[in-house]
């Protein structure tokens, strides 16, 4: 009984409950048909939101005003860079992934440079950076769809017993991220800065370095996400990252991370990503039109955030 109680006290548990309810509602509607396939599909798609969601989570945890709005443009450019470097050639996969990672990290570092050197608020800096990145992407990729090497596309879609391999790898990655958040100096520093940046400075935290690392990390995760998306959807294009602007922020908030900063959790990002994907699947299954689907998605996100925001601050 006490273990159930302590489980219910975790801020991330609600996103999983939400995902479960949506899934149950859908298979009740279909009469149990496609229940397993739905989970597999949800896992495959949730992976991409989780990867950028974790980056966004660290950024948002830095405190009010911190957000990375350049992720969609970043994903778009990195997917093009990865595909061009791989050039349809299986032997270049690792090099391509590294290129995407470096491209994303460079974008993240540039974001922080704008914030730090020009003292622009992060929301403006990352938004204006995304326009520049998008322009580079358009002139670099010429708007063409670039195909991944067959080996990479197969890898991105590879499943073992119905479980996507990418999802397994992402679970391992998120475990690492959770440990970094709670048990490493880096994570503690991010949490301290998010609660009170001045107190963090006076307690000896290297505020500038930690913020730089965080924006670079978010950028790098966006970059790798772009490469994986291009592999999964068998082609890179400029718009491939568009839906991850709202999604990356929504999974952070629905997952129980505080928008005010200083309080974060990684499991919630998974729960929220599954919830969002399953929600779309459910609405598709119910056969509602695209307009209604977007409307309901928006309303449900607002509802969840309102409910999650209802918990009282410790004061």
């Amino acid at each position: 009984m006490t273990s159930v109680k302590s489980l219910l006290a975790k801020p991330w548990i609600w996103s999983f409950i939400g995902a479960l309810l949506v899934w149950l509602a859908t298979i009740a509607f279909t009469g149990g048909y496609g229940a397993g396939g739905m989970v597999t599909a949800a896992l495959s798609l949730a992976v991409f939101t989780v990867i950028v969601g974790v980056g966004q989570m660290f950024v948002i945890t830095l405190g009010p005003g911190n957000v990375d709005l350049s992720l969609p443009a970043n994903i778009g450019l990195a997917s093009a860079v990865a595909m061009k470097v791989m050039d349809g050639n299986d032997s270049m996969i690792a090099v391509g992934l590294l290129a995407a990672l470096a491209c994303g990290a460079a974008i993240g570092a540039a974001n922080y440079l704008l914030i730090w050197a020009l003292r622009i608020p992060p929301i403006i800096a990352t938004l204006s950076a995304s326009f520049i990145i998008q322009s580079i992407d358009i002139s670099y990729g010429r708007g063409l769809q670039i195909k991944p090497p067959p080996g990479f596309a197969d890898f991105a879609n590879w499943q073992i017993l119905g479980i996507p391999v990418l999802a397994i790898l992402t679970v391992l990655f998120t475990i690492g991220a959770a440990i970094a958040l709670q048990r490493m100096i880096y994570g503690r520093s991010v949490l301290a800065i998010g609660q009170n940046i001045r107190a963090a400075w006076l307690a000896g935290v290297n505020v500038g370095r930690i913020r730089f690392l965080t924006y670079t990390l978010s950028g790098a995760l966006g970059g790798i996400d772009g490469a994986l998306l291009a592999g999964y959807f068998r082609g890179a294009n400029v718009d491939i990252g568009n839906e991850y602007l709202l999604a990356s922020i929504a999974v952070v908030v629905i997952g129980g991370t505080s928008v005010a900063g200083g309080k974060a959790n990684v499991p919630g990002v998974w729960g929220a990503a599954l919830f969002l994907v399953l929600l779309l699947t459910m609405l598709n299954t119910f056969g509602v039109s695209a307009g209604v689907r977007l409307l309901l998605t928006g309303l449900i996100i607002v509802g969840v955030i309102t409910a999650a925001g209802g918990q009282k601050a410790p004061r």
């Binding site: 949490l191 301290a192 609660q195 009170n196 001045r198 107190a199 963090a200 006076l202 307690a203 200083g262 309080k263 601050a313 410790p314 004061r315």
Partner: peptide
């Protein structure tokens, strides 16, 4: 050691 605890010292979530 900060004198203004709330603005210079305390991490309220911790």
């Amino acid at each position: 050691v900060a004198g203004d605890r709330q603005s210079d010292g305390i991490f309220p979530q911790w």
